[in-house]
Design a protein around this nucleic acid. Structure first.
Lengths: 124, 124
DNA sequence: CCGTATCCACGCAGATACTG
DNA sequence: CAGTATCTGCGTGGATACGG
């Protein structure tokens, strides 16, 4: 985990540092539904570049949320999954996500019009 | 509230759009402890520039989280406070904040070493 | 006191090509 | 397949000065 000395003004800042930003949330979201290979994640999030994806995963790893497993095969296979510690974010992000969806309803009337659908995933 | 048509991949993204980023969390945090004038907020968050502060407040206002009240006085007085809708984020951000604080403990051993103290505020 | 305008530098992130 | 390197642009946000 990160050991940078830095001042935070509230736990919100600290949590946002771990899971905030443009990509972390959606990456976490997919990993919370099970172990994934790099490529799978990239396919699930087509708009992220490989470079960014790897960067997000490294940071999640550094913060102890995600574990990276490399299999000594050819061609190489790498899998990412939530650590036990990462699981502790689940209920937190779940209420967060639910608030987000109800917010979309507030703003747009129908959240489904602005939420991309995933075949086999339910929301939140 | 915002009416931009945009696709979200999960409620997390939507919520992050409202409360994510470098400043929104801490601004919300202070407003959740009561109505504040512009200057007060700027004093409570010394590292934010006036321009950024106003920008964050405008966005929170646009998203229906914050209400801005202008008093026709000289010198001018402007106050910001959470709307009823904004209050709905309180329990959500509270669990968020608590996770953040416990995360700091995990990483640093003692969260108080990295948490700036506020005189009259308790954490979260 | 509150907010905006202008200028500008820096860093983030995209595209692309490359290695193991 | 997974990941890195380089190069580049574009936007974000800081500093500063000004206006209502």
């Amino acid at each position: 985990m990160s050991k940078l000395k830095k001042k935070y003004r509230s736990g919100i800042e600290a949590a946002l540092e771990v899971i905030g930003g443009k990509w972390k949330g959606i990456v976490y979201y997919h990993l919370s539904h099970g172990k994934k290979r790099t490529q799978e994640l990239n396919r699930l999030i087509p708009t992220i570049t490989r470079k960014m994806l790897v960067k997000q995963l490294r940071e999640l790893e550094r913060d102890g949320i995600v574990e990276r497993t490399v299999y000594a095969e050819v061609p190489p296979r790498v899998e990412y999954e939530l650590t036990d510690y990462g699981q502790s974010l689940k209920p937190v992000l779940n209420t967060f996500c639910e608030w987000g969806e109800s917010h979309l309803e507030q703003v747009y009337g129908d959240k489904n019009h602005v939420l991309d659908q995933f075949s086999d995933l339910n929301h939140c």
